[in-house]
Computed example of a mutant assay.
Amino acid sequence: MDLEDPRYAYMFGFLQADGHLASGTGNKGRLSVEINVRDIAILREFQQLTPYNSSITERVRSTNYAERHHSAVWTLCDREARAKVNDLGLPYGRKSKRITPPRVEFSRRDYLRGIVDADGSIGYTGQGLPFVSLTTASAAVGAYLCRYAKAVTGTARRIGRNTRDGVYNVVYTKEAAVQLAAHLYYPNCLSLARKSTAAASLASWERPAAMRVRPPGRRWKPWEDRTLLNSEGTTAAAAELGRSEASCSVRLWRLRTGQVRRPEDLPPNP
């Protein structure tokens, strides 16, 4: 499995996000992917790409989300094939928090497209804004998408775990979403047909004339935090720092409640 080949890079990203590698007694085990039957075509692509015997089956069962869920399952049991994907970074058993981008050379945008196809969403919000999002339990994968997308779009994102379920939600909207979707879903790339169609639909979006462009965020510096903490109030601090009073109020609350580190708690500059 050469991950510099765009097809295998995509496939590996998809397997990391939606696949399951199980071990059995002795040398037994299996690699499987179960997805909605509407996406069965991608499993057939995987089957053709894999030089080992594998099978695709369908089943209908009741789940927490639907009384009748029709799914397709691709299963591969070959020991050598399982060893290869495991060596590349697909762990056995529960792996959602443990997956990381490959440590070998790989086609980056194709790998990320596989991740987004499996665990992401593309489309328009209820307000008609284009978006590309990823939900992942892996800090490494979430951070990698942020770094890569910043290089492509110039838009920075900082990830943080959702307090409700402990996952990361990375979302790009407007121009950043349009640029990222066009970059990941290039013509004739291997992908879920419905995601590719959704990505193509974003290209027609144009910012309404009345929608202002929000300037990039301005990071708080330690000296600004010290000024804010020592100030008589947020109004005076806002005037001195050239920031809005609302911004100063939120930052002060975060400093006092431990949401962010106080300047005296930060390590000294080297």
Rank of each mutant, 00 (worst) to 15 (best):
L43G: 04
E206V: 10
G123D: 03
L145Y: 02
G258T: 14
S138Q: 08
D110E: 15
A83M: 10
I159M: 12
R262W: 11
N36K: 08
R38L: 15
G24I: 06
Y52W: 04
V260S: 02
V170D: 05
R218Q: 15
P51Q: 08
D265E: 14
K174V: 05
L88P: 05
I35A: 03
A176F: 01
C77Q: 13
A209F: 05
A72I: 02
S191R: 01
N162T: 14
A238F: 09
I42Y: 00
D2H: 06
L145C: 10
E4D: 06
A239Y: 09
D225A: 12
P216H: 13
D117N: 10
S32H: 01
I42A: 03
L229G: 11
E80Q: 13
N162P: 05
T163P: 13
S196D: 13
V132N: 02
N64P: 06
W74Y: 06
R108V: 14
E240V: 12
L180G: 00
K195C: 13
N36R: 12
A246G: 08
R251K: 15
R158V: 15
S107V: 02
E245N: 15
P6L: 03
W253T: 10
R68A: 07
R158G: 07
Y92E: 11
V104E: 10
E80G: 07
D117F: 00
T75F: 00
R261N: 04
Y52E: 01
G233R: 13
K84H: 02
Y8Q: 04
C146D: 12
S138K: 04
G160H: 15
T100S: 15
F106G: 00
F14L: 14
P215Y: 10
P267C: 09
E34T: 13
D18V: 07
P102N: 11
R212M: 14
L192R: 02
I56T: 03
A246Q: 09
Y10G: 01
A176Q: 06
C248L: 08
T63M: 05
R256D: 14
F12A: 01
I42H: 02
T100K: 15
G166L: 08
Q259G: 14
G258N: 14
R68M: 04
T100Y: 06
H20K: 11
W74I: 00
L241N: 02
N64C: 03
R261M: 10
V60G: 04
S247R: 09
A200W: 03
K28P: 07
R59G: 10
R44C: 05
A140K: 09
L43Q: 04
G89C: 03
Q16W: 01
K174N: 11
R38Y: 15
T227M: 14
P222K: 03
E67R: 06
D87C: 13
H70G: 01
R61D: 07
G26H: 07
T50C: 04
R262H: 14
I35E: 03
P216C: 12
D18Y: 10
G217Y: 07
T57P: 05
P215M: 08
H70A: 01
N269R: 13
G120F: 00
W223T: 09
T25R: 07
A246H: 08
G128N: 06
G120H: 00
P101S: 12
V152Y: 05
D225N: 10
